[in-house]
Design a protein around this nucleic acid. Structure first.
Length: 335
DNA sequence: GATCCACAGGAATCCTCGGGGT
DNA sequence: ACCCCGAGGATTCCTGTGGATC
């Protein structure tokens, strides 16, 4: 039933994008100076998740690469590479200038130096989830590299610009801000149809099934594709040759927990223990939580460290907390 | 209302790891 | 072989806050 599993993956960038013509042309207009060898103005793409920001950024840069031969680009997810060092390392990685930097003890900002030296032709850097960057001043340093063009991506404008200092704010005030709104129901339907065309056998799903998924996705294309992927997997596992309505109904919560499971797997042992303890109870207070945590691990860390772990879990939307000081409780994040 | 307590989260400091320079 | 350096984790110290108790 599945003919090409790649097109159902969340990171897949289609060769042709749907419903984002205006955004694509706005972005490629902004990037146009690159085609004549100049650096382009910074672009800022923002909007809710699953509205195509990452996809459109990668797609547009890819289009550009087809027009201009001598252009490098790199995608960085600042959620994963959130420190200054990691981000710089990732950026240098794509131009293969990190071969001899395997140590952590590279003198401070040697990476930046190297980037300055090496970037001599147009270079586009996509910084996804840029609001997660620990040290926003990195943006200023990147901005000052002549040939480097930045595409910034975040959910909300204020999460990014609220944290920048004056000088960077004023320099980025002229950047191209491109807003991404939620998809319409019918748009989600055509996006799904497109993926189905490339990834599934024609008769694998009915029109009603597609609409059922689109309805559940509520304007979020990533969610829609996640449901489709899970439904297809479930159907295949059950030996069915069609994605039925029941399968879709089952796939909806599965698609949600899939994301959560992947996040949990990325946590450290200690963080996972905390997560499991919180999972057991509806609500738990910090002191009880800490006691249980100490019981369950051999090398228990300090209370302060537990708080760091907890804020990380909260940051990942795995748990939530209520109450500011005394009487605070932790619980699993609402689904 | 003064005092105590539990807690959050920032800042300074310590510790460890891995690799370079000598 | 030795020391040194920087990053990042962990700990210690600290300040601020709000509920509980007298």
């Amino acid at each position: 039933m599945i003919t090409d599993a790649r097109v159902l993956q969340p990171e897949f960038v289609p060769g042709d994008v749907k419903h984002r013509g205006a955004e694509v042309s706005h972005l490629s207009d902004t990037l146009r100076p690159i085609t004549i060898g100049n650096r382009a103005e910074t672009s800022f793409l923002y909007g809710p998740s699953g509205t195509g920001k990452t996809c459109i950024a990668q797609y547009t840069v890819e289009q550009l690469r087809e027009q201009v031969v001598d252009i490098d680009s790199q995608y960085v997810n600042c959620w994963e590479d959130y420190t200054r060092f990691k981000t710089l390392y990732r950026i240098l990685d794509s131009i293969g200038k990190t071969i001899d930097i395997h140590r952590q003890s590279t003198p401070r900002d040697e990476l930046l130096e190297r980037l300055r030296e090496q970037v001599t032709s147009p270079y586009v850097v996509i910084l996804d989830e840029v609001d997660q960057l620990e040290d926003p001043s990195l943006l200023y340093d990147l901005y000052r590299i002549r040939e480097l063009t930045m595409i910034l991506i975040a959910n909300r404008e204020e999460d990014v610009f609220g944290r920048l200092d004056e000088r960077l704010n004023s320099r980025l005030s002229s950047c191209a801000r491109i807003r991404f709104g939620q998809y319409e129901f019918s748009e989600i339907v055509t996006i799904l149809e497109d993926r189905i065309q490339w990834g599934l056998r024609k008769d694998a799903i009915t029109q009603a099934g597609i609409e059922q998924i689109a309805d559940q996705a509520a304007g979020d294309a990533r969610k829609a594709i996640g449901i489709l992927r899970n439904a297809a997997k479930t159907a295949k596992y059950d030996g069915e040759d069609k994605i039925t309505s029941t399968v879709i109904t089952r796939a909806v919560p599965e698609a949600k927990s899939e994301l959560q499971r992947k996040t949990v797997e990325k946590l450290t042992n200690h963080q996972q223990v905390l997560y499991e303890i919180i999972k057991e109870d509806d609500e738990i207070e910090p002191s009880v939580l800490y006691d249980r945590y100490c019981e369950q691990v051999a090398d228990d860390k300090s209370k302060r460290m537990m708080r760091n772990y907890l804020s990380k879990l909260e940051h990942y939307n795995l748990i939530e907390s209520e109450g500011k000081t005394k009487g605070r409780i932790y619980r699993l994040a609402a689904p």
